[in-house]
Measured scan of single mutants.
Amino acid sequence: MQVTWGNVTVTFSNPEEAKKYAEKVARKLGGQVELHNGQFRIK
């Protein structure tokens, strides 16, 4: 499962870890987490 924002992509084998990481990054950037085609995207 991947977490992407800007031109950065981070890949996780565990979807739960990916979700936690995406939420943490979104909080830092003041963005929203979207699940899109099996990727968490931060907008």
Rank of each mutant, 00 (worst) to 15 (best):
K19W: 14
F12C: 05
T4S: 13
F12L: 06
K20Q: 11
G6Q: 06
Y21I: 03
V10W: 13
E16Y: 12
G31N: 02
S13K: 14
L35F: 15
L35P: 03
Q32Y: 15
A18C: 04
Q32K: 14
G30C: 10
N14M: 06
S13A: 13
Q32M: 13
L35W: 10
Y21G: 01
F12S: 00
V25T: 06
W5Y: 10
Q39W: 04
T4R: 09
V10M: 12
E23F: 13
K19N: 05
G38R: 05
N7W: 07
N7A: 09
K28D: 11
E17W: 10
K20F: 08
L35I: 13
V3M: 02
E16R: 10
G38Q: 04
K24Q: 13
H36Q: 10
E17D: 14
R27F: 10
A18R: 00
V8S: 06
Y21R: 01
K19F: 14
N7M: 08
K19G: 06
L29C: 09
V33R: 00
S13N: 13
E34C: 08
W5R: 02
A22K: 01
V33M: 05
E16Q: 11
G6K: 06
F12N: 00
G30Q: 07
I42H: 02
R27G: 08
K43Q: 12
T9G: 02
A18Y: 02
Y21D: 00
Q2F: 07
T11S: 12
E34W: 07
T11H: 13
F40L: 12
H36I: 15
V33H: 01
E23T: 07
N37C: 13
Y21T: 02
K43E: 09
N37K: 07
P15M: 15
S13P: 12
I42A: 00
L29H: 07
K28M: 14
M1E: 03
G38N: 08
A22V: 03
T4I: 14
F12Q: 00
V25G: 00
N37L: 07
V8I: 14
S13W: 08
E23A: 07
N37S: 05
Y21M: 05
V25A: 04
F40R: 01
N14K: 08
G31L: 08
R41C: 08
V3S: 00
G38C: 09
F12W: 03
V10H: 07
E17S: 12
Y21V: 04
Q39R: 08
Y21K: 01
V3H: 01
Q32C: 12
M1P: 06
T4Y: 06
E23R: 06
V3L: 03
V8W: 13
K43S: 11
E17F: 09
Q32V: 15
K19H: 08
V25D: 00
T11W: 15
V8P: 01
E34P: 00
W5S: 03
E16S: 11
N7L: 07
V10E: 04
G31M: 09
K28E: 13
M1V: 15
K19Q: 10
N14Y: 06
F40I: 09
F40A: 02
K24P: 00
K19R: 15
K24R: 13
G30S: 05
T9Y: 05
T11R: 11
T4V: 15
K24V: 10
R27S: 11
K43C: 10
F12G: 00
G38D: 06
T4Q: 09
F12H: 02
E17M: 13
G31T: 06
A18D: 00
G31Q: 05
S13M: 11
A26D: 00
F12A: 01
V33L: 06
S13Q: 13
L35N: 05
V10I: 14
G30R: 07
T9W: 05
